[in-house]
Structure formats: C-alpha cells, structure tokens
Design a protein around this nucleic acid. Structure first.
Lengths: 221, 221
DNA sequence: CTCCTGCATTCTGAATGCAAAATGCTTGAT
DNA sequence: ATCAAGCATTTTGCATTCAGAATGCAGGAG
C-alpha cells in the first residue's frame, strides 16, 4: 500500500487563542456573559485554566467582531448593542439575506430546499411544545441555511459576524406569543418563495421579516 | 474659573496593539507587504520597535479581518484573495452600497451631495493628469462617502472591512486606459442619480459599477 | 461630618523567558 | 550522486514577569 493512497485527514491543531475565541464568543452569545459584564482577565484565565496571553489575544479578536468593548487600561466589557445599533445591524442583515436569496433561488438543489422545509417542520414542533430555545436555534439555522445556499463564502462570514452581535437581543425580544406566531408565518412565506424559486418574493419576505424582527425587538429594549 | 468651564478634550491614548493593527493593515493595503509574504514576527518587531506580544495581538485581529492567514506553528502570511473570493466580496460590497444608496438618497443634505460632486471633480483632475494613485484614492472615497451618507454605522464598518480586503487587487486591476474611462462614466451616473435622489437608479448604478469592477479586475488575476 | 489628598492594592499593557514545533543543514548510507 | 535521517537553528506559542495606570481605602483638613 502506497502512502499516497490512504487519505489521512490532517490532524486538526487548534491554537489556544483560537479555542478561547470560540469559547468566550459562545459564552457571550449564550448569555453566560451578559451585556455590560466587566471581563476580569485574571478570573477568566483561572476558569479556562490558561495564562493571560492567549486570553488577551482572544479579547482583541472579539473586540474587532464587535462583541466586547476594550477600554484602555480599564479592561473589557461585554458590549450591549444600543437600539439604533440593533436596527442598523438588522437592516444590513436583511440586505445580506436578500442578496443571498437571489443566489439561493438560482443555485439551491431540490434536495437542499427540501432540507430547509424539514428544518421548518421541526421548528414548528418546538413551537407547538413552546420550547423557545430550540425553536430559536432552528429559526436562526434556517436563515443561516439560506445564506449558505448562496454559495458566497464572504457573504456567509459577514452574515455570521453580524448575526452573532445581536443574537442575544433577538432571543430576548422573541418572548411574546403573538410575535412568535407572526414570525412563523413569515418563515412559511420564505420557504414557499424559495420552493417557487422566486428571488424577488423571497427577498421581500426576508426584508419584511427583518423589519418585523425590529418591531418585535424594539419594545424589549 | 471653574473646572467645568474649560472644555479639555480627553487625552487620546491608543494602545500599542491598536496602533500596530492600523500600521500593519496599511502596510498590507498599500502593498508594502505583498500578498503571499510571510510575516516574520521577529523582523517586524524590530522594524516597529516593539515586542512580540502586541504584534501577535495585532496579527490575530488582522486575521479575523481576513487580511492575513495564520498557519498554526508556522507563522502568518499576507492573504492573496482567490478570484472567486474577489468576486464574492465584490458582490457583497455591491449589495451593501446599493443598500446605502437607498438611505443616502433619503438622508443626505444638499451640501453633502455637493461635496460628493466636488470630490468627483477633483478625481477627474487626477484622471486628466493620469495620476493613478490619487485618482484611485478619491474613487474609493466617493464610495465610502456614499456609504457614510447612509448614516448606518454597522453598514460603514462592514463595508470598510470588506473593501480593505480587495483594495489592493482593485488598484492593480485598474490599469488599462479604457477601463479607467468606463469607470469614470459609471461614477458620473452615480453622482447624477444621487443628485436626483433616485435610489433605484443609484443602486443600479452601483451594482453595475461592481459588475464592471469584476470584469476589470478579473483579467489581472 | 464631609470631602479631599495620598498611599496601598489591583488590574492592565507590554516585555521577557521558556518549551515545543518547524526549518534547514550536514552527514552518512545506498 | 542521491536521498534520507538526525542534529542544530530558528520561530512560534504560551507562561511569566515587570512596569504603569486605575481603583479603593484611610487619614487628615476644613
């Protein structure tokens, strides 16, 4: 057996700071580190069992992602998006998803669209059970899936970054029952538009969904 | 004299890593650090007269901006965007500028629009003198100005990041005379559309401009 | 009693040190 | 002569250390 024959995947070696970035990012998105929380380097280092160097590297990255704010000589604070900032971000996300919609309608395979419909159905189940967290996750994953169907990696990355910034706020805002129901109706329309491969209709649905997302979130701020 | 009376501006204290980020970013965008260049930490530290810690922090940030690539245990390399990546980025930038156009047409004051027209005129002067670098800078600043007129800070930041990634490539691509001329015609149309406050027309002009930017750049890759 | 000043403590920013990984060179075997 | 293995050097990754800034507290003046 030749060596070139076996296709051994390269051993994934994640550097510490990279691991820390994702870990802390998740802590922020999940809300374990709430907005406004002061991040003590020493404490976090102890919890993660690492030295300050990789943590500080990670904090710089998270700051450039807009998740935390660095105050010179005074440490880092988990960023709490202001209402206009949330609106601005939603507007951009809406435009990005509308762009993705055009490409998705063109590029997506029937299988991929079917998978989206499947996610939607699973989401409805969680809605029936009033499982807000799982519902929310699937909700987000539908939007992500549409963006991924565009096949545009830059678009995906940009969308992910922006979404991360306001994920928490959106989750908090989605707590009233009728809002929840409206959101589902909008999703239904999105899927239909995609199944019809009608980019204008899908784009419109996505933009409307974003506008309504703002209305739903606004009050919670 | 009371203390509250004098309005002393707070002393701007930039941390070292922050300074380094902008410095190295500029080096990359200006081309002093060409794509593919291996970044030796030691050498760069000597040049900037700093220790490795702030430089390494800066490199992490630049990697998250997509300007360099970190290879675990093997250092950093200035990223050279692949052709599909450039196209993807241009597509997203086009969508963002089209979005900005809508808001700019609504929000921009007459003064601001006049300033844009002034930049355009200055750009034409550099064109007449065949000063490619200064022409290019003003060209970019028109796009930036339109995006800023949207009043959407998230949009501005996102646009800036994406633009930085392909600035160099775009500059390199804009070297043939007829391309140059076409680009100017498209800019003329953009300004007219803004003066007419016609978002659809401006958006279309921007998208067309991006499509053509791709055609102009494509051959240079 | 209140408020300001000065000092001790704590925390951040940056430099240095150390271990592990990668690179390059030399040497030796075929 | 060619190629590979082993060693020396370089470079990266992370921990530790040191210096400077901010915070909090105590003591003293008004």
């Amino acid at each position: 057996m030749t060596l070139s024959a076996l296709d051994a995947a390269p051993i994934a070696r994640r550097s510490l700071h990279d691991e820390v970035v994702t870990r802390v990012r998740d802590l922020i998105i999940e809300g374990a580190l709430a907005p406004g929380t002061r991040i003590h380097e020493g404490q976090l280092c102890d919890k993660l069992a690492i030295s300050r160097t990789p943590l500080r590297e990670a904090l710089k990255v998270l700051a450039s992602e807009g998740l935390i704010e660095l105050m010179p000589n005074r440490g880092a604070v988990v960023r709490k998006p202001t209402p206009p900032e949330v609106l601005d971000t939603l507007v951009v996300i809406g435009a990005l998803e509308a762009l993705a919609a055009e490409y998705a309608c063109r590029n997506a395979s029937e299988t991929e669209i079917a998978e989206l419909r499947a996610i939607h159905r699973r989401m409805l189940e969680f809605y029936a059970r009033r499982d807000r967290l799982e519902y929310f996750k699937l909700n987000q994953s539908i939007h992500n899936a549409i963006v991924r169907l565009s096949g545009n990696r830059t678009l995906v990355a940009t969308h992910d970054t922006l979404q991360a910034r306001i994920k928490r706020v959106r989750f908090m805002g989605n707590d009233r029952a009728e809002q929840w129901q409206n959101s589902i109706a909008e999703h239904e329309e999105m899927i239909r538009a995609l199944e019809a491969r009608d980019p204008a209709r899908l784009g419109a649905a996505l933009r409307l969904h974003m506008e309504n997302a703002w209305k739903r979130v606004r009050d919670a701020l």
